[in-house]
Amino acid sequence: MKKLQQYSLLVFWTVLFIYPFLWMLSATLRPEREIKGFGIWPSEVSLYNYAQVFEKIPILRAFLNSIFVALVVTVAVVVFCSMIGYALSRLHFRGRDAIFYIVLFTMMIPFQIILIPLYILMVKFGWVNSYLALIVPWMVSALGIVLFRQYFQSIPKDLLEAARIDGCNEVQIIFRIIWPNSIPTLITVGILTFMTTWNEVLWPLIVIRDTHLMTMPQLVTIFAVGGQAENQLGVQLAAATLLALPVIVAYAFFQKYFIESMATTGLK
């Protein structure tokens, strides 16, 4: 009986949480006039809204742009932040902890504060309206550094010393010894970075003008609020669904590691 209560409560919360998404999904499959109220069962199913999205905006190109940018940023963050995390946790040099505290401090600064200086920098470099502006500023992340550093501290020192005696240099230690033993953390940082990069709207809006360079969230936002969708909610929602899809797929694939890593980084 108690179990039944527990499960009902869980189901209730799950439905409460997931309902808006289901409603959105169903709205994209319905004709415009039917999108009202809380009902989610469409009387007729059509892909008209999706066809409209593909017709009106270069969404495929934006999708590829987003994938490209998010992948490059993710790989860069995982590689560079693990190297920095290694240095900050395992190498001994003057000012090491000071550097770590500065990194931590940068996490407290809201993005809005560095937005303008960063934009000016992009202008000076001549990177505005190019992939460089979307990628380079995000190739290292403070959160990534902190997560790697914390995890690497739990790796036994002897393991690294054994590798050093076996003939590894520091770079080989990172990639041949530490990486294979840090897979959950690599995946966590990877997913977090991928999602953040994928969902970023504000920054692309500022540095990208050319439609062919736009990322998906940017294009969808402009599409939804910019009048191109002609106020058709179904089409707007279809664009938003397409936007959410890759992140959901990626998460579904890696969630096992993600949860594992969140659990262990909390405990150790």
Binding site: D158, E161, A162, A163, P180, N181
Partner: peptide, 11 residues
Amino acid sequence: MVFQNYALYPH
């Protein structure tokens, strides 16, 4: 060198 906790590579 042989270490106290053996330091074998787990992977």
